[in-house]
Amino acid sequence: TAGRSLGAGEMWIYHISGGSGVQLTARKNDQQDVNEPAVSPDGRYVYFSEDMYPGGMFNYNKDPNNQIFVIRRYDREKGIIENITGGAGSAFRSQVSPDGKTLAFVKRVRSKTVLYLRDLKTGEEWPVYDQLSKDQSEAWSIFGIYTGYQWMPDNKQIVIWANGKINKLSVDAPNKSTEIPFTCQVKQRITDAVRFTQNFNQDDFKVNVIRQARTSPDGKWLVFNAVGSLWKKALPNGKPERLTSATDFEFDPSFSADGKSLVYTTWNDTAAGSIQKIGFPVAGKSVKLTKEKGIYRTPTFSADGKQIVYVQEDGNNALGNGYTVQPGVYTIASTGGDALFVSAKGRSPKFIDNDKRIAFEASRGYGSYKTDGTDDKQIFKSTNGS
């Protein structure tokens, strides 16, 4: 399994009595699946399905009529791996006939999932049954892309599930199948679903989730985000009240070192995002620091209060791609003005070392660079963190 999710992995073989096992294939990354092992009758070859889609990572918009999965074969005598079949519509869930001459496998043909046969000597391939249920080739394949099936000992029939039935197919005639009747006695307990009356249009309601909580430097105040706005609360038992009366969404509050100012980000679907500064605890009117529209995140003050460092994010499907040409870490004067690009690298930046450097989060680690983005140094790296 992978640190990100189940499924991406390796092929291993274990003796039936147990043991530590023998690894047959190496994991190429943490996101592309390897699955559906099938062993040839003589035990020499292990056939399996592997995600070979371009890009080296899982994609949510894969085209099932192009190649996603390939059937590969591991030779246990020579220790080599070779591709057996794939191409348009992929190839997956392989089973070798008892005589070792024919490989059955499944592939997508336009909107249909089709059972194919391959002559292992000549390489010829042909469809035998196009009435299968839809495969899962576009999705995660941690449990297989199609259900398992098996050849009959005579090499002339295959038993396979499709459309809620167990079917026996003839390999000598296309789409010739016989249903194998199957019934079983089961006992199930059906319980009424738990239902609560919901009212989503209340003028007043109890907030159960807060985010981005920040304590003032003197420990007397808490500022946090809830239901799209920033709130302040005198500690320990004060009543929360809005920080502003603005209608824009408000996020990412951060105090100045003296606790007399706050910076935060806003979002409006028409005006896009901005960075704002406001006095504290007597708020007054907020001041917009940024000149340009953008998607702004995590602004923080320098120790002397003269600069703000923040992230300008790349575009996305929810907020759009406008005003996101050069994402990265930026600085701006705490009085507003022109923003200065620092680096394309880093998240959650903060001034350190008497405001001479900027520390930032990176992939599985933490680093810093000078305020102009030069002299990039790694502070620490986590082997297993994500």
Rank of each mutant, 00 (worst) to 15 (best):
D376Y: 04
R347M: 11
I352S: 00
F224T: 09
V46F: 11
A339E: 12
L117S: 14
F224Q: 09
G87T: 01
N208C: 02
M52S: 11
G373H: 02
L262K: 03
L132K: 09
V287I: 14
S137Y: 08
T178W: 08
V227Q: 13
Y129R: 01
A333E: 03
D63Y: 05
N268A: 04
V106M: 04
G56E: 12
N66H: 06
V70K: 02
A226R: 06
G55P: 07
V329N: 13
G43K: 12
G19V: 03
Y264A: 03
K288E: 11
G337T: 10
Q136Y: 09
R364W: 05
L117W: 03
S111R: 13
V96Y: 00
T383C: 03
G373K: 02
T270W: 00
Q202L: 14
E10L: 11
D42R: 09
D355P: 07
L120M: 15
I68P: 01
N59G: 06
Y116R: 02
N167I: 05
M11Q: 14
S40R: 00
T265E: 09
D192I: 07
L132F: 00
K101M: 10
K168W: 05
D172C: 08
E124T: 08
D99W: 05
R189Q: 12
Q23I: 02
S343A: 10
L243T: 06
V46C: 12
S343Y: 04
S94R: 01
G9E: 05
S254N: 13
V96S: 00
I295A: 10
K370D: 15
G322I: 03
G322R: 14
G294V: 07
P64S: 08
D192Y: 00
